[in-house]
Amino acid sequence: MSEEIELSLNEYEALLNKAAVGSGLSWGVAEDAAACGAWFMSFGVNELDTWIEHLHDKRFWIDYCKKIDQPSSNKLSNIFDLAALVYVRPEKKVQVNNYEWTGEELIIDGYKQTPSFRACLSEKQFKTLNKYAYKTYAPATDESRLSGAGAGLSDND
C-alpha cells in the first residue's frame, strides 16, 4: 500500500500553483486553480484526481476563473462551480449534487467536514503534482549556478 504524504495547507497550495503553471496554465489562472484545490483540502476533501484531470483542459480553468470574476455567469453544474461561487460569495448558501455550503460550513452527504490546515494526499498524487511542478524549474547547469546568490565568492569566512 502506498504511503500517505502530509503537507501544510500553505505548502500544498504552493505546490498546486506550480503544478498548474507547469501544466501550461498562466500564472494568474494557476493561482485561482490552486486556491480552488486548497479550499477543498481545507475541509479535508481530496478532490485532487479530478483537479489534476482538469489540468489537461486549459479552457476548464479559464471558464472557472470567469465564474469567479462574474458570479452571475456561474450555472452551478458541478462542485468546482460551487467552489468558485463560495470563493467570492462565502456568505451565500448553495447546494450542488451532494455538496452543501451553509455560508460557514461544508456538508457532504449530510456530514459536516472538519476544517484543517493540513493536506493529506497519496504518494501517487504527490508525484504527479511534482512532475508538473518540476517543469517550472530550470535545469541545473554550470552557467545557471553562477546566477545564484553567493556564486563565485568565498562564503566560508
Partner: peptide, 27 residues
C-alpha cells in the same frame, strides 16, 4: 528571475545570454 531545479534555489539570469530561461521566468 527563475528557480533552479538545484534545491529550488532562486536565481536571476541574463536573458539574452541564456535565452532558455524565458521558458522558466517567474512573474
Amino acid at each position: 528571475w527563475y528557480t533552479s531545479e538545484e534545491k529550488l534555489e532562486p536565481r536571476l539570469g541574463e536573458r539574452f545570454e541564456m535565452p532558455e530561461l524565458n521558458e522558466y521566468e517567474q512573474a
